[in-house]
Amino acid sequence: MYAFDFVKPTDLKSALAALEDPEALPLSGGQTLIPTLKQRLASPSCLVSLTAIPELQGVCQSAEGLSIGAATTHAELSRAAAAAYPALARLAGQIGDPAVRHRGTIGGSLANNDPSACYPSAALASGAVMVTPRREIAAEDYFQGMFTTALEEGEILTMLRFPIPTRAAYVKFAQPASRFALVGVFVADFEGDVRVAVTGAGAEGVFRWAEAEAALAEGFDPQALTPLAPPEQEMIADLHASADYRAHLVGVMTRRAVLAAITG
């Protein structure tokens, strides 16, 4: 790692002031950023730890759904959301491994927007709203391709608001070494308005699979999807899986997610 300074503010205002330095980077759980720093792929002047700021912590439920502090860890979310939004809680409980889940945060994951991360599919399928100190961003506008989001320089996520569907499920085919999603599909049914979001597969990052959504709106049944798969030319191809294999897996994982949403 290159040398850097480190600050750990205890209120949001101080954190934002520290992040005005264009060379500073926010540090949440660090489960991606620290390995990135070790590989010298980033050389911030200063890391601003966001884990000691009470405003960024915790999960609470209201009429609009779940409000999740951006620095809430996967482990905490998997406990706190278990009753209100079990599909989201289960997704959180399957990220990485227990040690990673104790450090990694939902805001860190969504800010990084790894094309194989689990949370982006949940945010897009749920129609979540990303809250920053400057504005609120709809999931539709937030994800802008691999590792790219609508966040501007110095802008951080403070809270995520997740509407809660009537039924939902997330199913992933884990890459066996990294445990990231080779393909992951989040299906959310809002009383007949069905949203399907796919991670790990799209060359442009997380995406909504409109064709599957239309089929499922007709009838929420895995059979409705049987002939469908997204276009191969829009899939990632790498040493882990070819584009046609990923396209096939998207169909399979979506059918499994629909079945899981039905059976609960």
Binding site: F6, G30, R103
Partner: peptide
């Protein structure tokens, strides 16, 4: 690279990988 877990320790009672945590944090 935070894959193997040989560096696991407990911080305030919870399991973490000590190679993926800054001492300052």
């Amino acid at each position: 690279t935070s894959q193997c877990g040989a560096c696991a320790v407990h911080v305030d009672g919870v399991l973490v990988k000590s190679c993926a945590v800054l001492a300052m944090d």
